[in-house]
């Protein structure tokens, strides 16, 4: 033993706390490995959006809908947002499983702070979201999607930004629901968000009823902003308001439940 015998140390104050509340690279790397080991997560967040994109893009010219041709690039960006959302939500929702296993409680017996834990969960969710966007964009690039180089980069970054909004949503659901229900509840919810928010088919081509509902769906703003560098035109402030409001709603909800969960009673 290189340290003094426990219990005979003269000053317990001399022991240090970890930097950054315990957040570190080893922790993140092992978390990534754990994520990749979970086949269900990999299939759901990487394979499903890829298949959906291949089905929806139809051919080089895009899908035809009531005489309107949808540019495959528009579809690709929508699916990338979908992938980022799916990945980030399921990443955030992992807290549900970790709470059920007692892992969160175990971590409270270590120097890792609750905020460092949440930061790790958000980083993991966003990393998974980025991977999903990259998979969809790679398939897009090989299947004839054409955009200016700067548009590729900008739209990818904006699609990825959606994962931040939905990482909070995932955390919120993870703290709200028991683990066995969390994915069952999230799957259909995200499906509705995607359809109404115009991820699969742009909002202006949806039936009128759906067009009226669309602005109130959490995906509406993120999808429109992600497509903006491609489509151009006037920037609608409602998009930005949608993103800010939903980020605040999910963030505050997640924070409230997280506080309740980690409070020392």
């Amino acid at each position: 033993m290189s340290t003094p015998v426990p219990g005979t140390q003269r000053s317990f104050d001399a022991r240090r706390r970890p930097a950054l509340g315990g957040l570190n690279r080893t922790f993140l790397l092992i978390e990534v490995r754990r994520l990749l080991r979970n086949r269900r997560t990999v299939v759901l967040t990487l394979v499903v959006p890829a298949i959906l994109f291949i089905l929806l893009k139809s051919d080089r010219r895009g899908i035809q809908l009531g005489g309107t041709v949808i540019n495959p690039a528009t579809t690709m960006i929508g699916i990338a947002v979908y992938g980022a959302m799916l990945a980030a939500t399921s990443g955030g929702a992992m807290v549900s499983i970790e709470r059920a296993l007692g892992w969160s409680r175990q971590l409270r017996l270590t120097p890792l702070t609750p905020f460092a834990y949440i930061a790790i969960k958000i980083l993991m969710a966003m990393l998974l979201g980025l991977t999903s966007v990259l998979v969809v964009y790679t398939i897009g690039a090989f299947s004839g999607v054409e955009m200016a180089p700067v548009t590729w980069v900008l739209t990818a970054l904006l699609a990825w930004a959606a994962s931040f909004v939905f990482a909070s949503f995932g955390l919120f659901m993870g703290y709200l629901l028991p683990s066995e229900n969390v994915m069952q509840a999230i799957g259909p919810t995200l499906g509705i968000f995607s359809l109404f928010g115009g991820l699969f088919i742009p909002v202006n081509l949806l039936p009128l009823v759906m067009q009226n509902i669309a602005p109130f769906v959490p995906t509406y703003g993120v999808a429109a902003i992600a497509r903006f560098p491609l489509l151009g035109g006037p920037f609608d402030l409602a998009w930005l308001i949608s993103v800010l409001v939903w980020t605040a709603v999910f963030g505050l909800a997640a924070m409230t439940l997280f506080r309740r969960d980690t409070r020392r009673t």
Binding site: T3, G22, F27, I30, R34, R37, L101, G102, Q106
Partner: peptide, 27 residues
């Protein structure tokens, strides 16, 4: 502390769990 049950992630190995936990301590 060693608690009665739970508190372990089932999809990590014994060594990974130990490395992960070790990483959050200053020493």
């Amino acid at each position: 502390a060693v608690m009665q049950t739970g508190g372990l992630l089932k999809d990590l190995t014994v060594r990974e769990t130990t490395r992960l936990t070790a990483s959050v301590f200053a020493n």
